[in-house]
Amino acid sequence: MTGYILRRLLEVVPTILLVLTLVFFALRIMPGDPAVAALGEFAAPDAIDRFREKLGLNQPLYAQYFAFLAQALTGNFGNSMNNGAPIGDLLAQALPYTIALALAATAIGIAIGLPLGAMTAVHRGGKIDAFGRFFALIGFSLPDFYFGVLLLLAFSLHLDWFPMLGGGKGFLDQLHHLVLPAITLGLVMAAFVMRLTRSSLLEVLKRDYVRTARGKGVAEHLVIFKHALRNALIPVTTGMGIYLLTTLSGTITVELVFSRPGLGTLLIGGVSARDYTLVQAGLVVFAFFVVVVNLATDLLCAAIDPRIALR
């Protein structure tokens, strides 16, 4: 087990190296120049040359690449090309907002989606099922950022229950700022979890071993909770792992709507300013998240069903 985790963690290194390489070249293929973006329309060509020289952009591409790799491996991502702030500081300020939002949304998603999904599967065809499926359909059908805007209009502009801008200061204030964005993403997540739970539970309920258990006269709730739900959780966990990543991505628009200073807004701004250093570092952090989430998903699946070999 430990060996498995170690090996998976070691696999992180090539993944991230690949991400680094991909991002490095993808950014440089794009038309546009960080110097023009940073200096603006009045910049004379000599100022632009000076800027490029200062940031090493006049070096040959391979030299830039190796310099960047060497820096990145020591965990030093340098300064933002656009505004000179240390990348470490920018990320340290942005990350907590994004992580808090993704986790809060996931928590809401599981808290609502899992029980609702199980109930709808057990009572399929009944009123609860109809309600659950309707809920999931609605949750899944609203464009999340537009839903966020509606929440903002109702609960912030008109009712003034929640703040409108920023991420807040101090724990309670931050929590206060988190509510609306978390609900925006959380409800979509809940709809997803509910559907996934329902469909995989139904899938499992028709399997041979469930039939066998029923045939042996095992009590129905035991059949569901001991045999069925546990097996049904595997696709649910995988699906949620995948969806958590979608949610991380969804944080971008929601952050924009609620003006949260998170990773998404940082990266979007970075791409449009051709802030190579910032986007590179941000995507490495994101890649790291993805690897961790995937690893956690696989470990969870293994914990739920030991028959899944951890190779």
């Binding site: 993944t15 991400v19 993808a26 038309p31 990543l245 971008i252 791409v271 995507l283 890649a287």
Partner: peptide, 21 residues
């Protein structure tokens, strides 16, 4: 792993980069 790699790019950011390119 290669799908992990692709997934390492947030969907929207991938969109931003593709659109920029």
């Amino acid at each position: 792993r290669s799908s992990d790699l692709l997934m390492s790019f947030p969907t929207l950011l991938l969109g931003v980069m593709i659109a920029a390119a």
